[in-house]
């Protein structure tokens, strides 16, 4: 029964969600919405599991004085200070997310700078990855390089400046007058076209494939063919 009950619950809830879609009347009408709320509540409890795992791991590291235990202390201090400030702001300001509360102070001056800088750091690693990926050794790599460069040029002032220089250079040839083309922002237009047409086409194809795969997997789960979620615990 331990193994059968989860399969029955998956089958029943999965089927009910599908039925509510096709029968939008009571008692099924509001069931999907109700299930979504329940889903959020259950998912909320899983946060406690994650928190327990994080705290337990770092407490053991501190207790055993393992290498880098001082950083674990920093992590736990950060965690508990955030929690204390969050609940204090709640008690004092009725919401931790009220502007001017200590919790929002922590958010503005600690979380945002850390998060933004962490992602900004990726710019450097992307540049190094680009060097490896963009070397035009094959047709595919060349296409990758050309489209990436065009999209980047189209989104920075350098692109406009470069186009004006190109037009000025061509104008130097005898008998040519392309000065009217200077304001065309060609790189921006090419960039927009790449994003709107070929990029959209490939992205749409990939997403359609993902959704079809997701539907097949959902059916396998509901019918009990896919049972990997029952392992563990």
């Amino acid at each position: 029964m331990r193994n059968q009950l989860p399969l029955i619950i998956v089958f029943a809830t999965g089927l009910l969600v599908i039925v509510t879609f096709f029968i939008p009347h009571e008692p099924f009408g509001s069931l999907e919405q109700r299930f979504l709320v329940w889903y959020s509540i259950v998912a909320g409890f899983t946060m406690l599991l994650g928190l327990d795992s994080l705290v337990r791991y770092h407490l053991i590291k501190i207790r055993d004085r393992r290498s880098g235990w001082g950083y674990s202390l920093v992590l736990l201090s950060g965690l508990f200070v955030t929690l204390i400030l969050g609940f204090y702001s709640w008690a004092r300001y009725q919401s931790p997310f009220k502007l001017g509360s200590p919790f929002m102070y922590l958010y503005s001056y600690v979380i945002i700078p850390l998060q933004a800088t962490m992602f900004a750091l990726l710019a450097f690693f992307i540049a190094s990855a680009a060097y490896r990926a963009f070397r035009a050794r094959t047709t595919a790599a060349t296409l990758l390089l050309v489209s990436a460069v065009l999209v980047m040029l189209g989104r920075v002032p350098l692109g406009g400046w470069l186009w004006q220089k190109i037009v000025s250079l061509i104008d130097l040839l005898p008998g040519t007058n392309l000065s009217g083309l200077k304001g065309l922002e060609v790189f921006a237009r090419i960039s927009d076209w790449i994003m709107d047409v070929p990029q959209t086409a490939a992205k749409r194809g990939i997403y359609i494939g993902i959704v079809l795969g997701g539907i097949a997997m959902s059916l396998r789960i509901i019918l009990g063919i896919e049972r990997s979620y029952t392992s563990g615990s």
Binding site: R2, L5, P6, L7, I9, V10, F11, A12, T13, G14, L15, L16, V17, I18, F21, F35, L36, W38, Y39, V42, A43, F45, Y207, I208, V211, L212, G214, I215, M217, S218, L219, I221, I222, Y229, T230, S233
Partner: peptide, 25 residues
Amino acid sequence: SRLPLAFTVGIGAGLGITASIQGFL
């Protein structure tokens, strides 16, 4: 803990069919 997990997986699988067909595909 498999029971609530099964509940969330069931809802996810159900929505994986109806919502993704209607909302995306």
